[in-house]
Simulated scan of single mutants.
Amino acid sequence: MIIFDLKCAPQGHVFEAWFGSSEDYERQQARGLVSCPLCGSAEVAKAPMSPAVGAKGNQGEGLPPEQVKKLLGAMADAQKKMLETSEHVGPRFADEARAIHLGEAEARAIHGQATPEQAGELREEGIPVAPLPFPVIAPEEEN
């Protein structure tokens, strides 16, 4: 695992993101899967980071790698369960979320794709949306 400090261009939000490797970050970035968790912008780049300095022997080193792996696995399992109980609406996500919010469509859990602009508009309209913590391969993208 590698942690990068990332920064969105439009708002300047700085946030941490975890990736399996530098190559994983590059692949996800190229596919448009990396976005700001605060504003949804996909205009994200690596931010300057302070160098990793080892802790003194008398100080804690944070969570052990095994515990981090266990916690990430639990998050992935929770996301999988949520996806199993929600409907994939693909690129129609913004329209479906709005229709559900306005009572024009059946209330149900959905997931799909939205541009950062669409996600921002939904939030401005009071419609709760959030990016998933891990990338999802949509049914039409599977091999």
Rank of each mutant, 00 (worst) to 15 (best):
S35G: 13
E61P: 06
G62S: 12
L6D: 00
A76N: 05
E16L: 15
L71R: 04
A30F: 05
V34G: 08
E96M: 06
E23L: 08
L33I: 07
Q28A: 11
E16M: 14
C8M: 01
P65Q: 14
P10C: 01
A74E: 13
G20E: 09
F19N: 10
G62D: 12
V44R: 00
L6Q: 03
A97C: 08
A42I: 08
K46G: 06
P65K: 06
P91R: 04
A30R: 11
P91A: 12
L33C: 09
G32A: 11
S21M: 10
E16F: 11
G32C: 03
A45R: 07
K69H: 12
L6W: 07
P37V: 03
G90D: 14
G73I: 13
D77S: 03
V53S: 12
P65I: 14
A74P: 01
E96I: 04
C36F: 03
F19K: 07
W18Y: 13
E61Q: 11
V34Y: 04
K81N: 06
P91W: 07
M49W: 09
M49D: 07
C36I: 00
C39Q: 03
T85K: 15
E16Q: 15
S21D: 08
G20N: 09
I2R: 15
T85I: 00
L38M: 12
A52M: 00
H88F: 13
K7R: 13
S22L: 11
K80S: 06
K46D: 05
A47C: 08
